[in-house]
């Protein structure tokens, strides 16, 4: 990384922090700074977490003692990213739905971090005419070789197709899913999971046809 690039990045970060503060003051709940992945890097400006998230985290910590959630508030999109251990995913999910009132699964994504896979659940509460108070994203780490994760279809039925998609493209098996089949790839697929970073396409490269003029 050259000096110039570093300068660019620093300037962007500073600008992002300023914008985030301005928006937080306006009560919009969405800013523009980057929360680092898993609370790791990128949080040098230290985005301000709204009060209600702290209350939510306190209650969560009291309910599940000894679990390291590593909370990271992301001012760029207003989501609170928490790490959830895989073996306690189901009870935490049920707590989030029934006690914290997060009744709506917005998106379910898989991520390949090279050393591990991850499933991310973006959650919120849908209530007529109300701005959502809590935007929470659960991150669940999954082993690369033994890619198994508990299914949450009975908690949020939205997970049905989304888990099938992640199974199809990442090869994560969701235990307890009633109908875990391919959904997007064809039945005669060559094998392998295309969204993993180490996927190699076995199909022969097609020759580019250039029309003579």
């Amino acid at each position: 990384m050259t000096d110039e690039e570093r300068k660019d990045q620093a300037a962007a970060a500073a600008k992002a922090a300023a914008a985030a503060k301005a928006r937080a003051a306006a009560g919009e709940g969405g800013g523009a700074a980057a929360g680092g992945e898993g609370g790791g890097d990128g949080g040098d400006a230290g985005p301000v977490m709204p009060e209600r998230y702290q209350q939510f985290l306190d209650a969560l910590g009291k309910e599940f003692e000894g679990v390291d959630f590593a909370p990271a508030y992301n001012a760029a999109d207003g989501f609170l990213y928490i790490n959830v251990p895989r073996d306690r995913l189901r009870e935490i999910a049920l707590y989030l739905r029934d006690r914290a009132g997060l009744n709506y699964l917005r998106a379910l994504s898989g991520v390949d971090w090279m050393d591990r896979l991850q499933v991310v659940y973006h959650l919120t509460r849908v209530e007529p005419d109300t701005r959502p108070e809590l935007l929470v994203a659960m991150q669940v780490d999954v082993d690369r070789d033994q890619a198994v994760c508990p299914s949450l279809v009975d908690v949020w039925p939205t997970a049905d197709f989304n888990e099938r998609e992640v199974f199809d493209l990442f090869g994560i098996r969701f235990e307890g899913h009633p109908n875990l089949r391919r959904i997007l790839l064809p039945d005669n697929w060559q094998g392998g999971y295309p969204l993993r970073k180490d996927f190699v396409d076995k199909r022969p490269k097609r020759q580019r046809k250039i029309r003579p003029r």
Binding site: A13, A76, A107, H122
Partner: peptide
């Protein structure tokens, strides 16, 4: 254009519903 390290979930209300980009 080099965004800093990080993640963002952006969502818009399209004619069909919530389109989100994570």
């Amino acid at each position: 254009l080099r965004p800093p390290k990080g993640q963002v979930y952006n969502r818009v209300e399209s004619p069909r519903g919530e389109v989100g980009v994570y």
